[in-house]
Design a protein around this nucleic acid. Structure first.
Lengths: 237, 237
DNA sequence: CAGTGGTCTAGACCACGTC
DNA sequence: ACGTGGTCTAGACCACTGC
């Protein structure tokens, strides 16, 4: 649909990269500024800004301007939720142990999703207090994420690193959630019987149509739950 | 925002009235037709049609045309999803067996959520083809939903009955999703070993701040998954 | 080929907010 | 008065579909 070479798409990408390093309510360029800067008509610059508002990244106020918008409210249930924030909301101390960081050729299923044969593999175990609750197996495209090897993955959210340090704004997500019994390998890490109930989530994250990382989580069923309140649309007639 | 007297709004209203009496996949007027008919420029006619697509009422296909879209496409992960629709999307034949419909005093936990001591209890088992996949235990406030006793709960979605027959628009939802092992009672209904992995979902539905119904689902883990694609907002700093 | 939607231009007028 | 976003025009070129 939205072709990547369209001018308004390029302007959107430029703005999204800017938004990643700005704060809530910071001002964004006006339609006229953008039109002049990119040498396009005002309608084209406008299209970029309006799209961002529709997608929730910006707030436009007639007579005032366009501002970075940051409501966390709507995605709710399946929001991409960094582990530390999850922990904060439950008032427990989070801890992360890095089990493995290597450069590998990924399994072919992952290679297809990431359209890439060179990846960084990260395995981490996440704790609430001293209790292991989530096991993470993540592949990152090494052409895009090589710099992540320099980061401290015990204390920093990979999500945040991608967005703010590697300048890879998170623009699209595919994910799948299952209820499973934990496989043996994970069970021993969790210290629970093999087959205990757990969530399994698989997620692929994109920057502008470009896949960046694929992650698989196992989350202990007794300790994890998704909870949310929202307002659905009224159904059609 | 969108002023009612804007020309594109008038065209939208005209189209929406038309859509109500058309069928899924019926063709809608083209941009040029609308521009001529309403004496506006193509960009204005286009705005009306594009808006309808964004709002889920229409599907636009380059080179072909614009068509009435009926299913709400935005299928968020946790959309309130009637069972039959879920089945349709997976191309399997759904079936529902009603196990119990009684008037009861609910457990105190449910009574608190519904703020009510008189409820209708419905237990149903849902099948894909001949395979049981979901078990439902639902309490409905009898002061609001008494008429549901007259409905055929084997063929009709309770969700639809509440909205369209009892005139209880669904304005808010609270829900919680867990990964659990199925309890014995449910395991025997499913025909699986007790403790097999499953989703457990609890949901309370409101009409204008007024709780209407509380439902608990068990869904077989091997047969159920939530999958979605979406565009997240950037996270806060 | 003609028709469709997708993008884009270079102007225009308006209502609104700030100064 | 000036800048902002909201609407609108009358053209244009493109890629795609169906015939």
């Amino acid at each position: 649909m939205a072709k990547r070479h369209a001018k308004y798409m390029q302007i959107k990408e430029h703005l999204l990269r800017g938004i990643a390093s700005r704060r809530f309510r910071d001002s964004l360029p006006s339609e006229n500024e953008l039109a002049q800067k990119f040498g396009v008509s005002r309608m084209t610059a406008r299209r970029a800004l309006s799209d961002l508002e529709l997608e929730g990244y910006a707030l436009r106020i007639p007579g005032k301007g366009t501002f970075v918008q940051n409501r966390r409210s709507t995605q709710g249930f399946f929001r991409v939720r960094p582990f530390r924030k999850h922990a904060e909301e439950h008032h427990v101390t989070p801890r992360t142990r890095v089990l493995e960081v290597t450069v590998v050729e990924p399994p072919k299923e992952v290679a297809e999703r990431l359209r890439c044969r060179q990846t960084i593999l990260v395995r981490r175990l996440h704790y609430f207090e001293e209790e292991p609750v989530r096991f993470e197996t993540r592949y990152l495209r090494s052409d895009l994420c090589a710099d992540i090897l320099w980061e401290n993955l015990e204390f920093e959210s990979i999500h945040e690193i991608l967005i703010h340090k590697l300048n890879l704004p998170l623009t699209q997500v595919w994910q799948r959630l299952e209820a499973v019994g934990v496989p043996e390998e994970v069970a021993s890490l969790f210290g629970v019987p093999s087959g205990s109930p757990a969530f399994r989530m698989e997620r692929v994250t994109y920057t502008f149509e470009e896949p960046v990382t694929r992650v698989e989580y196992f989350m202990r069923g007794e300790l994890y739950a998704f909870e949310d309140t929202f307002c659905p649309q009224l159904e059609n007639v």
